[in-house]
């Protein structure tokens, strides 16, 4: 059970309050009709699956109801940071090898 800091509530809460909703910063093509099948397939299905830092989205479903972003280490599951939807991923010091 992870502890997650909701950037809207500014409160660290148990994972039970949150729903993970997958990769962050996957933007929907602005004009889908001009994309190829391959590009649309990429948008739908291709995901970074890093062993290390991942940018992902969470929904504070049993809290404020807001979607937000997080950077988390997928080896240790420790959150590096969380930030609001629409904000760019914060600049990070280069990743230390675990």
């Amino acid at each position: 059970m992870l502890l997650i800091l909701c950037p809207y509530c500014q409160s660290r809460r148990a994972e039970l309050e949150f729903r993970n909703v997958g990769a962050a910063h996957i933007s929907r093509p602005s004009d889908p009709q001009t994309t190829t099948d391959a590009q649309w397939g990429e948008f739908l299905y291709q995901r970074d699956n890093p062993k290390g830092r991942i940018a992902e989205r969470w929904l504070h479903i049993h809290g404020c109801g807001r979607y937000f972003n997080a950077i988390r280490d997928t080896i240790s599951d420790v959150f590096v940071t969380t930030y609001k939807s629409g904000e760019p991923p914060p600049a990070m010091p280069s990743e230390a090898k675990p």
Binding site: I61, Y67, G86
Partner: peptide
Amino acid sequence: FAMFEDYLQAEWP
């Protein structure tokens, strides 16, 4: 509801 919320908050704020 969650899907709508997602589009409202994140895709078309």
